[in-house]
């Protein structure tokens, strides 16, 4: 528990240091190495949760520190970074994380999905299809898909080792008995490469199919729970279901009120207190692109 206190001295390195007194991408090199070792294992065993010594980051646990540590260990000067929260680049936490990387790395940032080489996300997968050149980094609050069924980490680790997933089947079966449907709307568990059951993080189940055979590398970081996991490109990702109760994504009766898209995930916007509402795209970049394509003018607040 002891660390000798000394200001960071980095021997003779003539680095571009965007934030004075801190290493490129904030983390020190030995922390990056430790996380990088974990990421390689995560890629080699798709869907398996690799323990790592998560660090305190300068933002609170639960606010994306896992994803941030992954991004910090992966990012280089040539990368172009996009950060979204709830599908939007402009939510406060997305702004805060984007600024953190802009100041600690000096890399170019973007709001356009197609321009980004690394996309850090909380709760959504962009609507724009991802490519082999991209890495999607997920912020994960609770990495253990079995946690609600079995609170002990010791037990769930054994269940994964034995590939003993009966608990999860029972839960889905009980849902169907009780509700006539699988009552999971987000963080809907998936089976990766036919082996591990994995939490996709709290993305809506609408996004689950995008993970399957995705050309981009998908990395997951849970900072507080200190776990890393991954889905390599072109990997089978199947949402759990029963044959007679197949997995289904959410759908809406109306299109996006701003861009008219019919096959995107929509946010419900409350207009007054009598229940009037409208639906708009959660992916703000996809929505803006859609509108631009149709010659609609970009509207923004100041």
């Amino acid at each position: 528990m002891l660390t000798l206190q000394q200001d960071s001295l980095r021997s003779g390195e003539k680095e571009k240091m965007p934030l004075e007194g801190y290493n490129f991408a904030y983390l020190d090199e030995s922390t990056k190495r430790m996380i990088r070792r974990g990421l390689l294992k995560a890629v080699a065993v798709p869907g398996y949760q690799v323990p790592f010594a998560g660090r305190e980051m300068p933002m609170p646990c639960g606010w994306g520190t896992g994803g941030i540590q992954v991004t910090a260990s992966v990012i280089g000067e040539e990368d172009v970074l996009k950060v979204i929260d709830q599908g939007s680049d402009d939510t406060t936490n997305a702004v805060s994380i984007r600024r953190f990387f802009a100041s600690t790395t000096g890399v170019k940032t973007t709001t356009h999905t197609a321009e980004a080489t690394i996309i850090q996300t909380r709760h959504r997968i962009p609507e724009h299809p991802l490519t082999e050149q991209q890495i999607l980094v997920y912020q994960v609050p609770l990495p253990e898909p079995l946690r609600w069924l079995e609170p002990s980490e010791k037990e769930t680790r054994t269940l994964h080792a034995l590939e003993e997933y009966g608990l999860m089947n029972v839960k889905i079966y009980e849902d169907i008995m009780r509700h006539g449907a699988i009552a999971m709307s987000f963080d809907y568990p998936v089976r990766v490469n036919g082996r591990y059951i994995m939490s996709p993080s709290p993305i809506p189940r609408f996004d689950n199919p995008k993970m399957h055979q995705c050309p981009a590398l998908q990395l997951f970081g849970a900072g507080r729970e200190k776990r890393l996991y991954a889905i390599p490109p072109y990997t089978d990702v199947k949402s759990l279901d029963f044959e007679d109760y197949p997995f289904e994504v959410q759908h809406w009766d109306e299109p996006c009120a701003l861009c008219g898209a019919r096959h995107t995930y929509l946010d419900e916007v409350v207009l007054d207190d009598t229940g009037k509402r409208m639906f708009v795209c959660s992916d703000s970049d996809a929505c803006a692109e859609n509108r631009a394509r149709q010659g609609m003018t970009e509207v923004s607040h100041d």
Binding site: C61, G62, D85, T92, N93, H123, P204, Y265, L266, D267
Partner: peptide, 17 residues
């Protein structure tokens, strides 16, 4: 403290779901 307070962050996508 981080995790308890993180529910202050927007969760409207999951809430919508």
């Amino acid at each position: 403290s981080g995790f308890v307070q993180h529910i202050k962050l927007p969760h409207y996508v999951d809430f919508q779901a």
